[in-house]
Design a protein around this nucleic acid. Structure first.
Length: 490
RNA sequence: CGGGGUGUAGCGUAGCCCGGUAUCGCGCCACAUUUGGGAUGUGGAGGUCGUAGGUUCGAAUCCUGCCACCCCGACCA
């Protein structure tokens, strides 16, 4: 392991990359654009999965699994959907290899598939093709299914966690009898995502809707949660789509209503991915490394012993054993780092790099004084405290840290939403301060595209809580009734 | 797919212009001293210099082809 990581202010991309690799979250793989998620990174992802999964179940959903491969013909059934994904699909064309006689393994041209298979970039098509067989009557609805899976999108340029050719995610796909119920579902899941981001990840998000231009391919309406990273760029952290009857029509999924009429089913889909890992890293970390909120930290408390002799070590072990038992009883995950191959200073730096929220240091001196040293990762503080009531103190402190991490990110985010009323101001904020820019827009795709071409900023969302306010579009001067959020985005 | 660049030990590099079998740091291994903020010393292991060919007595170095990767752009809801 190297000594430090690149400074955040020097080169943000380099800092992020360094951090992900040095903190042992992930690394590049032999396959271009694909990453290896290492055990420590995966442990965090597993925590995310567990919490989200519980939330999905509590809102009535069940898990299922659909095929990795999608027949090409399925894809072309929904016009805007195929258009949105066509340029980034991995395609399976053959099913066998052979030896060419010169010792080379080559594709057996005789083993060509009659119909090519697409490695799923998302599963709407295969799922709606399946749902056709599941739905006949209004009594079969709603169907509330989620899938944990990997998907492949052959992106030209990739970044660890934020945009990889293969990534892990969950995708919910629901079918409803009424438009209203489907819209409510899409909104509900946006809420689940927003709560998760804020309460668990400590990442404040803006809840909003996507413009026509930024909408999911095949959706009628896309609900999004938008987070802000420390370099002032926005990150789409999760989306929930109201799909209308688009997929039901494309795959001919009809049901008989109470009134005995044949009607098309209403649909939603929603997903979050390992991109959340990138958001977590970029939202909180500093030049010392990761800062992981207690609710996601695989290790919440690390204990580092200080000792010179075997006797001292034995005495510290004795104290630590009972502390660990107490903490474990409270459901707190503890790591006792008693490796004798590393010195304390090294361990301090290493656990800080990995973002462990709280460190307890205990040595012979402490045993004599009835104290320990407590170090907080989020504010980098150190204090010597009594061993009396330590477990309770730690339990409470973890809550304080969780809240503080969120509050800090929230303060930053709020300080980086800037209202502007002219295009000059817009460009100035975009190039300087960055962050979200709140301004009036005339509501046309044309204007949005022109602004994107000129500034690279896109409309991240139309916030749900945007208030009615008369104004004029900063670009065209045409009238507008509410502000939208622009930003440069990942 | 366009424009630019780089390939030398696990990682980061020097050497290349001006040819003589490879430098330094980190990391790794052993021993000793250390241990409350990334230890120090001594010794050691580790390299077909991306690859194929050419020029030459001799190639990391010069020439040609190929391959890989990186950056910028195109692309990315």
């Amino acid at each position: 392991m190297g000594k430090g990581i690149t400074s955040r202010s020097e080169d943000y991309s380099q800092w992020y990359n360094d951090l992900v690799i040095k903190a042992d979250l992930a690394e590049y793989s032999a396959v271009r654009g694909c990453m290896v998620i290492k055990p420590y990174g995966y442990a965090i992802w597993e925590r995310m999965q567990a919490i989200l999964d519980k939330e999905f179940k509590e809102t009535g959903h069940s898990n299922a699994y659909f095929p990795l491969f999608i027949p090409k013909s399925f894809f072309s059934k929904e016009a805007s959907h195929v258009e949105g994904f066509a340029t980034e699909c991995a395609v399976v064309t053959h099913y066998r290899l052979k030896n060419d006689g010169n010792g080379n393994i080559v594709v057996d041209e005789e083993a060509k598939l009659e119909e090519e298979l697409i490695v799923r970039p998302t599963s709407e098509t295969i799922i709606w093709n399946t749902y056709r067989g599941w739905i006949e009557s209004y009594r079969d609805l709603p169907i509330l299914v989620n899938q944990w899976a990997n998907v492949v999108r052959w992106e030209m340029r990739t970044r660890l966690f934020l945009r990889t050719a293969e990534f892990l995610w969950q995708e919910g796909h629901t079918a409803h009898a009424t438009e209203q119920e489907a819209i409510e579902e899409a909104e509900k899941m946006q809420g689940v995502y927003a709560d998760f981001a804020e309460k668990v990840m400590g990442v404040p998000v803006v809840r909003g809707r996507k413009t026509e231009n930024e909408r999911f391919a095949g959706a009628v309406d896309t609900y999004t949660i938008e987070a802000l990273m420390q370099d002032g760029k926005a990150l789409q952290a999760g989306t929930s789509h109201f799909l209308g009857q688009n997929f039901a029509k494309a795959f001919d999924v009809k049901f008989t209503s109470k009134e005995g009429k044949q009607e098309y089913v209403w649909a939603t889909s929603w997903g979050v991915s390992t991109r959340l890992m990138g958001a977590l890293v970029m939202a909180h970390s500093d030049d010392q490394g990761l800062v992981i909120p207690p609710k996601l930290a695989p290790i919440q408390v690390v204990i580092v012993p200080i000792y010179r002799t075997e006797e001292e070590k034995a005495a510290v072990d004795g104290f630590v054993d009972s502390l660990r038992a107490e903490l474990k009883a409270k459901g707190i995950s503890v790591k006792y780092d008693d490796r004798d191959t590393q010195r304390p200073g090294f361990k301090f730096a290493e656990w800080e790099l990995k973002g462990v929220p709280l460190r307890v240091t205990v040595g012979a001196r402490d045993l004599q004084n009835g104290t320990v040293e407590l170090a907080r990762r989020d504010i980098q503080s150190k204090e010597t405290v009594s061993q009396e009531g330590l477990a309770v103190r730690i339990e409470n402190l973890l809550d304080v840290i969780q809240e503080n991490i969120y509050q800090k990110a929230l303060d930053y985010r709020d300080a980086h939403i800037t209202e502007v009323n002219s295009y000059d101001e817009f460009k100035e904020v975009l190039e300087g301060k960055g962050g979200f820019i709140s301004c009036h827009w005339d509501g046309t795709v044309e204007t949005e595209k022109r602004v994107k071409e000129e500034t690279k900023a896109t409309i991240r969302c139309i916030p749900l809580d945007a208030k009615e306010e008369a104004g004029v579009c900063i670009f065209t001067g045409k009238p507008s009734t509410k502000r939208v959020l622009f930003a440069k985005a990942y």
